[in-house]
Design a protein around this nucleic acid. Structure first.
Ligand SMILES: [Mn+2]
Ligand SMILES: [Mn+2]
Ligand SMILES: [Zn+2]
Ligand SMILES: [Zn+2]
Lengths: 128, 128
DNA sequence: ACCAAGCGTGAGAATCGTTCTCATGAATCG
DNA sequence: CGATTCATGAGAACGATTCTCACGCTTGGT
């Protein structure tokens, strides 16, 4: 029920804050190892999941199905435009698609509508 | 280079046509086994991937990360509204979001924009 | 119809991201 | 300062998907 503050959770949160791009659990585990914070891989997975459940980090899947995490600037609901190669991320505010998604769901008598909306592309720097 | 017609591919295509909902490779493998068509699991995976590459079937991931396949009515690009519990699927035509996705990508100088847009909900029949 | 060439198949091994197990460690609270 | 109980971590287990490779079948030409 209660969430305890541990060295490990603080370390994961801090490593996460240093990242600009979406990162996988394994990548973050490596970041932690490199900076000297010893945190078990299982703990990294658990902690990220906990953060995600608390909406403290955003979560998405890349084309390979790997789960990526990122602490975003804005707390409110939003979407992402992510560079396929460097994962540079732009936070997108999409009132247009929000309305569209809700309307479509209602029109077909579906409830508890949830939407997965992510944009992938190649950023300027990653273009030859 | 050339694609050969085999008993297995015909069987997978046929099983796929009988389905109304999105199905995983393993589910389709089971469907094939049940109807007496013996097709190896690896072949089912390969065949579905081949069909997807040829845009003959649509492909998406559920919340657990499993890949689901479905032969849709419309051949043109579209999206889906899928029931989380029974996977009943509605094909969605989204000119609104198409334009939105393209505009957002261009605005941030990203190219080769690709979008993942799927809606999940609970259909009427699956509501208590 | 016959044959050679090479793509397709399948059983099982291998991958790999993620989760589980469970004994041990550490936050929390009175 | 305990007692309680959640958190941790090393390694095992899982599960979806892919890979391996010997053998079979489709195909295109003769
Ligand atoms: Mn949204
Ligand atoms: Mn679209
Ligand atoms: Zn980039
Ligand atoms: Zn349903």
């Amino acid at each position: 029920m209660t969430t305890r503050m541990t060295r490990q959770r603080a370390a994961v949160a801090e490593a996460l804050d240093e990242q600009d791009e979406f990162r996988s659990a394994q990548q973050l585990h490596e970041v932690l190892r490199a900076r000297g914070d010893s945190v078990g891989l299982a703990t990294v997975y658990r902690t990220l999941q906990t953060f995600a459940d608390a909406h403290e980090v955003d979560q998405l899947r890349n084309a390979d199905g790997e789960v990526l995490y990122r602490r975003c600037e804005r707390v409110e609901h939003h979407h992402h435009l992510v560079c396929r190669s460097c994962r540079r991320t732009i936070e997108i505010d999409g009132p247009t698609v929000e309305a569209w998604a809700a309307k479509v769901g209602a029109a077909h008598d579906f409830t508890d509508i949830d939407h997965t909306i992510e944009l992938w592309g190649t950023c300027k720097d990653c273009r030859g």
